[in-house]
Nucleic acid binder design. Structure first.
Length: 900
RNA sequence: GCCAGAGUGGCGGAACUGGUAUACGCGCAGGACUUAAAAUCCUGUGGUUGAAUAAACCUUGUGGGUUCGAGUCCCACCUCUGGCACCA
């Protein structure tokens, strides 16, 4: 009988053969054939101790099918894999396991790599790296230095989450929604620490503009747009009575400004600070009460502020500001609903046309004025919150604006205010600058040195570097950077020292600050004693540019810009001794030659991964690329041309897979039972790629049955072993024409579907074809008629299945069909779209289907002929008998008789 | 509240620029093989009425509209999922 389909008998064998024969090696390409390149990239994983989740292979299989499809179609394909291994989860897992992440991470990576090979992914493993490899992160650090030099980084105090009970700094992810620490359950607080901050807001406009040319899911584009949140409006200045102060408020609705009745400041506002310091005062000011209110507001976490149900609290400053438009005096309040880091930290209250302002006005007994007609033309007073009208409308009670519609009135008043010098057009963004420091061990050390003596002399880096003449961006925070210098590039990589105690510290500072041998250094400028920065980079850093490295990366060497073996072994601090300047080529030249030699792979053509990275990772990576473009280190403006999101894989019970629920599916076990091909195809078949799915073992079994039937079909038809083959008379070994037509259609359909990542329908089409092939075969065996397919045609079906099921198809290709080279190096079969000679056209009467007719190709376009054939249909005849009708015919599509 | 996505058989889902709704898979029912079970194969399978493989009607979250014709386009609404949220 036929040999049984047992994937475990041959899958391992092919993994080894493919590796030995370098089947998936990236081809060399030159500038000449770069048009035929395709760069297929997965969002690289975070290698956790648990190993691959069954969700991972869903995205990786789709990208693998794409890569294999393009390879078979003659494209030069780059399809690499690496590891995003710095960051919090590894550090926390290591703390829990009482191990150093430096020891743990390589083990996790080894397991991930083994599982990926097991699943037959066609990565070029020659290009593998981890963001934690010093050979890689020396570049991450070098790029940081370039960004510093161009003025994109500054240092500023910013609050971090801190758990007073555990005495440790926390990341956002470790704080639960109720403001407690996920591990100990205590309330967290904020702690101010100096942090490196990326001026990403300088790129807000470019990041917004760049979205226009991208082939990304509409939803992700919208989320990025909203995240950047560009708003155009005006900053209006209000003079404060009995003082020399001016308060500036940003607004997008200056058309309602005649209805302004108060002003509210954020507790952190400069004006408030002056009051507390006693620099300004009025008779009505109660400094003690204000102090108390501000302190309470600051003590509250954002989460607590929300928990209070948004009840408006606030306090009067004792001051009034003047609205230049009508001379009205606006009492100035302080309230915590106004945020210092949005707009100007001051809001002008228009309670008639803003619900939040209305609530505040009611609470403090402030006047409410209507300046826009309501939806139904209401002009009366606004007494209830339901009356507050926030939409556009016709302006009233506003002197020269009366009668104008909102849009027109906005332009009018902005021009007016600017002309009078009372305001200035302004654009603000929701996007904030990016806090880049982490007070954690497991990240790239930030390659900066602080020299107190240079700082005292007010020397900044830019005073010391002759080459930096034309700074593209004026660094507004220069005074904060006196005494800060990047390390000399011969010192790169600045290695993360191997230390025993790497847990977060009681002070909230980085654990590296406790390592004296790391901290102590000399100033690159004056040579005196200096201190290293001890913060590390966030886990985003490594993923911001990894796709630039794959094109040039080669595990076997030729990567390092200098030979570390010539340097002294790591000192206790774990970083190499300085090399003298003439030992090493400058990194900039090294970088430029790498980009020159491999840059034609860029940008990434296909980028596949989860939608959870909709904003952060994708925005940060785009930002780095735009900045690198601006300083000439790269010649692309966007990193990822096409983005597609893979849906989550839930457990069979529709919950997330979790050890505590006991519903985790382990890919190793699935492969052991059903084989890698079945797992791959199952994950592609179950639903559209971007959709969330729940695991279904039944569906997996259905796919397994399909693969088994493929296996048997080839043995029955083409096995060299006569006992396994069903024999036909030689005279009958002809092709079945209708079956070949169907095969050709299937080839075309599968090719198209792959390019649109519609793997589920591609598989359905192949299943359908197998059904047809089987019944043709069964019929032929029974009545000795024309058997199914010639070997040549049968090969084609195997080839289109190959990207989906690489193991099974290779086994049949070589062992049954006797081919000498891998099916994965063969060319995608050619198929021409054949038009059927006969076509079935549905016939409707009054829009209801009453029958179908068969029409020959040559009569498609003869309406009269169609009508004749349609009327021969018994059922159609019945409905039309003795009736007057009008006929609609859409060529080759449908006939519709309308009874008049 | 705002932004985005989605509602189709018993279930996962299919349907090109509006043109035979329910492809493919699962499940279920009946049958074959078997001492029996599993596996495998064959047949059937949206709903209602019906003896029917006769016929008719209904059916893509709900209610309207456009059209010869709507799962697909337009308007209003409901539900679910994800993200953001006192954003001036």
């Amino acid at each position: 009988m036929i040999a049984k389909y047992q994937p475990s008998h041959f899958e391992k064998k092919w993994i080894e053969v493919w590796e030995k024969d370098k089947v998936y090696q990236t081809p060399q390409i030159t500038n000449k054939n770069k048009k035929n390149k395709i760069y297929v990239l997965d969002m690289f994983p975070y290698p956790s101790a648990a190993g691959l989740h069954v969700g991972h292979p869903r995205g990786y299989t789709a990208s693998d099918i794409l890569a294999r499809y393009y390879r078979m179609n003659g494209w030069a394909v780059l399809h690499p894999m690496g590891w995003d291994a710095f960051g919090l989860p590894a550090e926390n897992a290591a703390i829990k396991a009482k191990k150093n992440p430096l020891d743990m991470v390589p083990k996790n990576i080894a397991n991930f790599r083994r599982q990926m090979k097991m699943l037959g992914f066609s990565y070029d493993w020659q290009r593998e790296f981890s963001t934690t490899d010093p050979e890689y992160y020396q570049w991450t650090q070098w790029l940081f230095i370039q960004f510093f030099k161009m003025g994109l980084l500054y240092k500023k105090n910013a609050p971090i989450n801190f758990c007073p009970f555990c005495k440790t700094g926390l990341a956002e992810e470790e704080v639960l929604a109720d403001g407690t620490h996920e591990r100990c359950g205590n309330k967290i607080t904020k702690k101010e620490l100096p942090q490196w901050i990326f001026a990403i807001t300088q790129y807000a406009d470019k990041l917004l503009e760049g979205l226009k040319g991208l082939d990304w899911p509409e939803g992700i584009l919208a989320m990025q747009r909203n995240w950047i949140g560009k708003k155009e409006g005006i900053n209006i200045n209000y003079k404060v009575k009995n003082s020399n102060e001016i308060i500036t408020c940003f607004t997008t609705r200056p058309d309602t400004n005649f209805g302004a009745t108060f002003i509210v400041l954020a507790p952190e506002h400069e004006f408030v600070k002056k009051i507390i310091k006693g620099e300004i005062k009025s008779k009505k000011t109660d400094v003690e009460k204000i102090k108390k209110y501000v302190e309470e507001a600051k003590a509250k976490t954002e989460i607590e502020r929300e928990a209070e149900g948004r009840k408006k609290t606030g306090i009067f400053t004792g001051f009034y500001a003047v609205n230049n438009l009508n001379g009205r005096l606006l009492p100035v309040y302080i309230s915590d609903f106004v945020l210092m880091n949005f707009g100007t930290g001051a809001v002008v209250g228009v309670p008639g046309h803003d619900k939040r302002d209305f609530e505040f006005a009611k609470k403090f007994g402030l006047e409410v004025i209507r300046v826009v007609k309501g939806k139904n033309g209401e002009t009366g007073p606004i007494a209830k919150i339901e009356d507050v009208y926030e939409e556009d409308g016709e302006i009233i009670n506003s002197e020269f604006l009366n009668g104008s519609k909102t849009k027109e009135a906005i332009l009018k008043i902005i021009d007016y205010l600017e002309k009078k010098g009372w305001g200035k057009r302004a654009v603000i963004y929701h996007l904030r600058d990016w806090i880049f420091s982490r007070q954690r061990y497991w990240g790239e050390p930030i390659p900066m040195i602080y020299c107190e003596s240079c700082a005292k002399k007010k020397i900044s880096y830019w005073d010391t570097d002759e080459k930096i003449k034309n700074l593209k961006f004026k660094n507004k925070n220069l005074e904060k950077l006196f005494g800060w210098f990047p390390i000399k590039e011969q010192e790169l990589p600045l290695k993360l020292p191997y230390i025993k105690s790497y847990q977060p510290t009681e002070t909230g500072e980085s654990p590296l600050s406790k390592v004296a041998s790391f901290v102590k250094t000399t100033c690159p400028n004056c040579g005196g004693p200096a201190k290293r920065e001890t913060d590390t980079m966030p886990n985003w850093a490594g993923s911001c540019w990894y796709f630039l490295a794959f094109p040039w990366w080669n595990k076997e060497g030729n990567f390092r810009h200098h030979d570390f073996s010539t340097a002294s072994p790591p000192q206790s601090g774990g970083f190499p001794k300085r090399l003298s300047q003439n030992q090493v080529a400058p990194l900039i030249e090294n970088w430029q030659s790498k980009i020159k030699n491999s840059g034609h792979w860029l940008p990434v053509d296909w980028y596949l991964g989860g939608a959870e990275h909709a904003v952060l990772h994708l925005l940060y990576a785009r930002f780095w690329i735009k900045a690198l473009y601006d300083i000439g280190l790269i010649n692309i403006k966007e990193p990822f041309l096409r983005l597609r999101n893979v849906g989550m894989v839930l457990a069979e019970d529709h919950r997330k897979m979790s050890k505590s629920f006991g519903n985790v599916i382990n890919p190793d076990e699935v492969v052991a039972e059903y084989g890698a091909d079945a797992l791959r195809m199952y994950e592609m078949f179950i639903a559209p790629f971007s959709q969330e799915i729940s695991w279904s073992t039944k569906t997996l079994q259905g796919v397994y049955r399909f693969l088994k039937r493929v296996w048997e079909m080839y043995y029955k038809n083409y096995s060299s072993d006569k006992a396994e083959r069903v024999s036909f008379k030689p005279s009958l070994r002809l092709n079945n024409k209708t079956l070949i037509d169907k095969l050709n259609k299937t080839i075309i359909k599968v090719g198209k579907d792959i390019q649109h990542i519609k793997m589920n329908t591609a598989i359905a089409a192949m299943m359908k074809f197998l059904n047809e092939w089987e019944s043709a075969f069964a019929k032929a065996s029974a009545d000795k008629s024309i058997p199914s397919l010639s070997k040549e045609n049968a090969k084609k079906f195997l080839q289109i299945l190959a990207p989906f099921a690489p193991f099974l198809t290779e086994e049949i290709w070589r062992e049954v069909l006797g081919e000498k080279t891998s099916i994965h190096l063969s060319s995608w079969p050619k198929a021409e779209e054949v038009e059927d000679e006969e076509i079935v056209i549905p016939v409707q009467v009054n829009g209801k289907l009453r029958g179908t007719i068969k029409v020959e190709r040559r009569t498609y376009n003869v309406k009269r002929e169609i009508e004749k054939i349609a009327l021969e249909n018994e059922k159609v005849k019945k409905y039309l008998q003795g009736k007057k009708y009008k006929m609609i015919y859409v060529e080759g599509k449908i006939v519709n008789f309308i009874i008049i």
